[in-house]
Amino acid sequence: MVQKIGSQYKEILNQYMQRQSEQNLYVGQNFSRQLISENTSPEDVISMHKAAMQELYEDMPETVWHSFDFLIEMMINYGLALQERQSLLQKQEELRVEMDLAANVQETLLSTTMPSLDGLDIGLLSVPLRKMNGDYIYFISGGEGHAGIAVADVIGKGLPAALCMSMVKFGMDSLNDSTAFPSEVLSTINRIVEKSVDDFMFVSMFYGRYEAETGVLTYGSAGHEPAMIYRAETGEFEELTVKGLLLGVSPMASYEEKEVKLDKNDMVVIMTDGVTEGRTAEGFIDRQVINELILRKKDESAQTIVQFVYDELVRMQNAELSDDFTLVIYKKV
């Protein structure tokens, strides 16, 4: 095999030495690709060159052959660097495979079941920027006409954010009470997160407790983007502001909660800052833009509205979102 390659090289070199045409160079280029794909090291290529030259031009002065020996020595470290690169490529591929597996695990781990409640149409979408999602939607439903929804966003992205989110999930699982009130839920999760995360990692979270019979949503926020309510009667949006510190900053934090009653065709819009912090060439996408998008589809189903808002925002930002994107709409029907 080595001999065959050597004689092929000699032939190509010989052709070039005689004509020096573009065509000869092209053949050489292709041959070098073949050598690379066979992991031939740079020093081996020069050895091959020297051997070919010795056969073709045996009368060359000794100094020329010595110079080749020196060059071979010079190339050995390049060969090692090449090997290193190949092993890095292999490691990178292994990491990619592991990330894919982790993303699958995350998807399974954080999966949640949308509750079905009389008179409530729910639409949602959560799209990670990278493989792992730092946003999270979690429902607690008990079947007594109550459901809780948590929408959380870890500051930070990728793998660390995803790991942090698992903690929120276990906290929610351990509560598992659809009748629990936001201030209690947020305080509990805050204590869990505060104990277990790094100083620069925080979670913002909205929690809403909905009662189907009365149409009342009780909500609280741990430093989360304010949710909005759309009033069908007036056609206006209002921010649902409520005091509460980010999760994980202070174990002493306490959380306010408020109530809002939904009437027919009213909507509650819950989102993460990936929705509101979008930037276009002209500037920021503000809430007004989002409100207008929602209004354009207000008579459609909640899922249709959510999908429309996402599609339009992606279009406005030339398909380049800069953060995980999560949007939930509760629509009273």
């Binding site: 500051i155 790094d198 925080f202």
Partner: peptide
């Protein structure tokens, strides 16, 4: 954005 906020809080 929130990443910057994280730096100040830390």
């Amino acid at each position: 954005d929130s990443t910057g906020l994280g730096v100040f809080v830390a």
